[in-house]
Amino acid sequence: MPQHVRGVIARAKGEPVRIETIVVPDPGPGEAVVKVQACGVCHTDLHYREGGINDEFPFLLGHEAAGIVEQVGPDVTDVAPGDFVILNWRAVCGKCRACRRGRPQYCFDTHNARQKMTLAEDGTELSPALGIGAFAEKTLVAAGQCTKVDPAASPAAAGLLGCGVMAGIGAAINTGGVGRGDSVAVIGCGGVGAAAVAGARLAGAARIIAVDLDDRKLSTARGLGATHTVNSRTSDAVETIRELTGGFGADVVIEAVGRPETYEQAFYARDLAGTVVLVGVPTPEMRIDLPLLDVFGRGGSLKSSWYGDCLPSRDFPLLIDLYQQGRLDLDAFVSETIALDEVEEAFARMHKGDVLRSVVIL
């Protein structure tokens, strides 16, 4: 029987979000209903509210989530009611050319639940953020969006792997290929950049240089493994990174802002034959202008990292194990826990840079 639950809805561009009653249908083939326990407040949710993703209002916001599988539809075998899961927005198809080549992390045909959740008052179909919609007491997703992990993990910390933390860690380890003894610079130390610092530390980087305009974020980055910090308001980021790497530049530079200016910094702050990883999300109008001779002459790799090039079924359980062992401090990313009706205020704190992550507890 369909269930009526509370959820955070963005009705129109720029309007404050509000709590409304939504209808969650019974799961169909390949679908699951998840009772949400915790969901992080991510910049992507704010982008949805501002119309920066698309204009398919109304949106059911929230996507960095963990919870308990409550029901599954026909033909679902990978998860069962009672499983503790982290939700992801890339349920792989297993059939596309990437999947057939053994690279499901690049799946070109990821999918979400086929059925739509709706507003209880008039049946309007909702667009769930990143196909998840987890600022709600319960949500409907494709079963492949559920990754089973150790139920002893804190839901508030575990859910953050569903987006920003995984994006940052994956940018360092999966996309950047950071290895033991490497030098790494991370430009932009919000949630994703801070996670990239943590990922570089996990990979065994010898020197990890965190760059930001905010000393609070730099302090957090140092706690997560940065060996050096650079406030680019007062220091030239490129010159300082070079000074800290023997005059050469870093082996891997991760750009976690998504702006032309910071991408150019990343490009010139890397060593010859080094790697630049773009994980910050640019807006459609942004352009980059680099001398083609410099692109050719400096060699190396210019990469983009989408969701940290992760494979949730592989990466989520591994990172939860590292968290349980005390080797990955996911709790450090949780700045505060809030109620479902405090999301709008959390957006304001996030926009000001006052928090790394607010996490809704249900």
Rank of each mutant, 00 (worst) to 15 (best):
Q3C: 00
A10L: 03
A10Q: 03
R18F: 12
V24W: 07
A38P: 00
F57H: 01
L60W: 12
V72C: 03
A80D: 08
D83V: 01
F84E: 03
W89Q: 02
A98I: 06
R100V: 13
P104Q: 02
C107K: 05
D109F: 11
N112V: 15
Q115T: 09
T118S: 13
D122K: 02
T124P: 01
S127M: 11
P128R: 11
L130P: 07
G131W: 03
G133A: 02
T139K: 00
T139H: 07
C146D: 08
L160T: 12
G162E: 03
G162I: 00
G164P: 01
I169K: 05
G177N: 05
R180F: 10
G191K: 09
A196N: 01
R201C: 05
L202C: 00
G204W: 02
R207W: 08
I208W: 12
I209C: 02
A210N: 08
A210S: 01
R216N: 03
L218F: 05
G223T: 14
L224P: 06
H228Q: 09
R233F: 00
A237Y: 10
R242G: 10
R242L: 11
L244T: 06
G249L: 00
A250Q: 00
V252C: 02
I254K: 05
I254V: 04
V257L: 12
E264I: 14
A269I: 12
R270V: 03
V276W: 06
V279G: 06
T283C: 09
P284T: 07
E285V: 11
Y307E: 13
D315W: 11
P317R: 00
D321T: 04
Q324W: 06
Q325N: 03
A346E: 08
F347L: 03
M350I: 08
M350N: 10
D354N: 11
I361R: 15
